[in-house]
Computed example of a mutant assay.
Amino acid sequence: MAKDYKTVLENASDEFVEKRSRFIGYCKPVKTEQEAIDFINEKRSEHWNATHNVYAYSLREGNIKRYSDDGEPSGTAGMPVLDVIVKNEIFDVVVVVTRYFGGVLLGTGGLVRAYSHGSKIAVEAAKPVIMQNCLVCEARCAYNQYGKVSSLIIGVGAAVDDTVYESDVLVKFHIKPDLLGTLNKKLADATSGEVTVEQKDEQYFAVQINE
């Protein structure tokens, strides 16, 4: 059974100014290393005149983690950006923190804090989500059973994706694998075994994290 994991929902950015240096944090969900590299190159082109375009990314496939200081002192930029990703246990993500130097040196500690913050606000803007592995299922029932069946499906913690009204009612939903047995029992009890669940697929679904 595939495991749940944390990633980000969308491409987003945020920025701040520290001692006249402008830091812009970008974050994007990616599936492959090539997608991560393409995004990094895109930001390098967009900010060709920036002092630094620091990056880090983490991929589930192959457990790949990469980072670059892009000219900042070793250990003060890329690693702090990656640390935010790793400590939040986020995968399939790339972060770029662009810096426009403002003329004031931040020092080693200042750089670490600034790049960490740039990564943190970028990740927050991109909306961390849990990708839950779920079973995609269907249940067919008569119209007079629909209210009861729908309530039971939602009641065990499943999510209804679609309802098709034909000669009878087809309820399409996704459910965590460990909840299916409970649902099957409740449906059997409530409908005298007339309504059963048919598993169609297995997919990941994004669940927003409530901070």
Score class of each variant (00 low, 15 high):
K200L: 14
A188E: 13
L187E: 02
V17N: 07
Y143T: 14
T76A: 06
D189W: 00
V129R: 09
V195T: 00
K148L: 14
F23A: 05
L179C: 02
G102M: 06
A56R: 05
M79E: 11
G110V: 08
V171H: 03
S21E: 02
S68R: 08
I40H: 04
E89I: 12
E35W: 06
L59D: 00
C27M: 04
Y146F: 15
H52V: 10
R22W: 05
I209C: 07
I209G: 04
I24R: 03
V149A: 04
I24K: 00
L135C: 08
N144K: 13
E138S: 14
P177Q: 05
Q145N: 11
V81G: 05
Y165D: 02
D92N: 15
D92F: 08
D162G: 06
N184C: 12
L82I: 01
K87D: 11
K176S: 07
V149L: 04
D189I: 06
D178V: 08
E138F: 02
L106M: 12
G103W: 01
Y115I: 10
R60A: 13
M1F: 10
S68K: 08
Q199S: 09
I40G: 02
S68D: 15
N41A: 12
A77Y: 04
G193M: 10
D38C: 09
V160W: 03
G102T: 10
G147E: 10
F205G: 13
T196G: 10
N133V: 11
K186Y: 02
C137L: 12
S119L: 06
L183C: 00
E194M: 14
G147W: 01
L59H: 05
V96M: 07
V129G: 11
D14L: 06
I90Q: 06
Y57N: 06
D92K: 09
V97F: 02
I153L: 08
S192C: 01
L152D: 00
E42Q: 14
E61S: 15
K43T: 09
K148D: 07
D69M: 08
F23G: 09
N88E: 14
S13Q: 13
G102H: 11
F101Y: 14
T163I: 15
V112L: 06
Y26Q: 03
K172E: 05
F91C: 06
V86P: 00
Y55D: 01
S119R: 02
L111N: 06
V96T: 10
N53H: 04
G62F: 07
E198Q: 12
G75W: 06
N210S: 15
R60T: 11
F16W: 01
A142N: 14
R113L: 09
V164F: 00
K148Y: 03
T196V: 11
D162A: 14
D201M: 05
Y204S: 07
K172A: 04
D189N: 13
R44Q: 12
V171K: 05
N88S: 14
L106C: 08
T7I: 03
T163C: 03
A159N: 11
E33Q: 15
E33H: 04
S21T: 04
H52N: 13
A188M: 06
H47P: 00
R20Y: 13
G102D: 10
K31I: 07
H47R: 12
V94L: 10
G71L: 05
G181R: 13
R140P: 00
L106V: 12
A12M: 05
V197W: 03
